[in-house]
Write a protein that binds this DNA or RNA. Structure first.
Lengths: 341, 341
DNA sequence: TTGAAAGCGCTAACAC
DNA sequence: GTGTTAGCGCTTTCAA
């Protein structure tokens, strides 16, 4: 609890130089003589001087802060994305403001407004409500560089996108090649890009194989509710699925449990592919074949895009057009798929 | 990309009042006539005025920002804690700066310094290196209210603490009551409070029962490495454990897999209790008995403690002594424990 | 290269 | 209840 904050003036006074010189040393400006530099640095450490961030921000118009909005860090995929982002952005001296949108449009709008209000240097956002007019307006109202994280939004901003369509197509094609036709797709109810695109890929895979698209898409009510019941019901029907492509850890767990409870075995009776690779998928018995979604790579790209934009911001006559980076899934073959019996 | 930022002066001018009045309206001060209030509000929306956060912070000396440092949000327990914190603190208008310490002392020190530098209104922190002199100094150097999240640190700050000792004691007592004596405890290598306290509880449980403490504590090298090998080895020894108390989702998964590979069954051959309740534990077959760690409650308490401190900060002659809140585990009985055969 | 000085936009103290 | 004004601490011209 310091009595009074030590300001740059105190530093300048003790060092016997002007405030301007002190500032130059602090900001590592080029034109400073070694003597002045040494004196100022001595004063800084003697006084334990700490620059006031708010004043720096006010004056320099950069806060060295990036706003991140994901639907929910509790989702391990977003947690990992956040960690990767932090890792990269830290190196350039940025701190991250994190906010969970929780798929609530009003909340997302509030968060975006707050990012704007607080003068973030940039934002990386994955709004759950990408088609919502208010959310779109809020995103368009952003005056700092933004990177859209795996969302289809009609805005003038950079984006990083998973190639869900081709990923899912590859998985379905693989299952088709094993003789499966009754292939179920288990997703969340939330209608954001990943879900829409995966459905698109699912349909396309059958169509391209000249096969009818089965009516086997399961969409849970919420990300947290269990797919257990839906899967159980499906398995008891006349013409049950022989293979499942399943999104998310929780949906996957529920699905596997439902399969087990029906007395069915993986991969002998039912083939299963998970979307997203996890410790769980790797250590399950049998180890699960998955579509790996390279979250870290995508997060890195998002950070790079943003950093580039921030760097370009000054001294550009016209901003460069939006950049969109696409990243492919990877089908990791393990032991949860077999030929149709 | 506004040409020029609209300032409170523009608002005041358009409303035909002074900047002071405009400021009062913006900050919801009491002494403003409805007429003035209306005029200012009209001007604000006409100009789409947005107050400059840096200037507000500089002047008012509050940033409405809370710093959070956890070891890793990738750990679902911390992710949930973060979400609860955000939920509560949002209501009071705070945004959260999140940083992962990753159990690296230097990194933790840097983060704490940054929080200090950036003038957080408060911090909630769980340093991985609670005994590290540098980290301790950094925490002591904090001039804003702080809440320590489940760490034993010799600092003058509020804290929220899980009662690991009694929780683990209860679980071991339960297993002892089922006739088990060879009870293994699987933990992480990291030597932070939760691990230390759990070991303490484990030992105490045996001592209080008048039994020798078995040499059955497994500590993995890192949180991400697998306990699979250690558990497998233990199970092949002459006098193998008949029960496991296991921390964390990943360690738990590995342990269960190792048990399965040895041809042993839960709960018939081996009893298992997890620490921390998860979807996985609930949906596993059989559903797992767990020690529930009420993360949300603890996070809520942390937020309340912090908010209280912040409120007290002004107008207190002497600060109130540190408050420490303790929260008990809860033993949730499911189907993974049986009598020793 | 350095110093002096002008604000960045706002709040809070004070005067009216 | 409202207006005036002095800074908060810093960066950034501009002169020297």
């Amino acid at each position: 609890m310091a009595n009074k904050q030590i300001s740059i003036r105190d530093v300048a006074a003790l060092a016997g130089v002007s405030v301007g010189s002190a500032s130059r040393v602090i900001n590592g400006a080029a034109n400073v003589t070694p003597q002045v530099k040494a004196k100022v640095e001595r004063a800084i450490s003697a006084l334990r001087y700490q620059p006031n961030h708010a004043a720096q921000t006010l004056r320099s118009r950069t806060s060295k802060t990036i706003g991140c909005m994901f639907s929910d860090v509790t989702n391990p995929l977003y947690a990992r994305a956040f960690r990767s982002l932090e890792e990269r952005l830290r190196r350039d001296g940025y701190m991250l403001l994190l906010a969970n949108g929780l798929n609530d449009p009003q909340r997302e709008i509030d968060i975006l407004r707050t990012f704007q209000l607080r003068g973030m240097d940039g934002v990386i956002i994955a709004p759950g409500n990408e088609r919502h007019a208010g959310v779109l307006d809020a995103v368009r109202g952003l005056t700092m560089p933004a990177v859209i994280y795996d969302r289809d939004m009609d805005v003038d901003a950079d984006a990083v996108l998973f190639d869900h369509v081709n990923g899912v197509k590859a998985a379905i094609a693989y299952l088709l090649s094993l003789g499966h036709r009754r292939i179920a797709l288990a997703l969340w109810q939330v209608k954001s890009r990943p879900v829409r695109r995966r459905i698109q890929g699912y349909r396309a895979a059958f169509k391209e194989a000249g096969l009818p698209v089965p009516d086997l898409i399961i969409q849970e009510a919420t990300p947290t509710s269990s797919a257990f019941d839906d899967v159980s019901r499906l398995l008891r029907e006349a013409d049950p699925p022989t293979a499942f492509l399943v999104q998310g850890t929780q949906t996957l767990t529920s699905t596997l449990r439902a399969i087990g409870k029906q007395g069915l075995r993986v991969p002998d009776d039912i083939s299963v592919i998970g979307i997203g690779d996890t410790e769980f998928a790797q250590t399950y018995d049998p180890p699960l074949t998955v579509l790996r979604t390279p979250v870290d790579d995508v997060a890195d790209m998002a950070a790079e895009l943003l950093l580039k934009r921030i760097a370009e911001r000054d001294g550009q006559d016209r901003p460069a057009p939006p950049r969109h980076e696409r990243v492919a899934y990877e089908l990791v073959l393990r032991e949860s798929c077999g030929a149709r019996r």
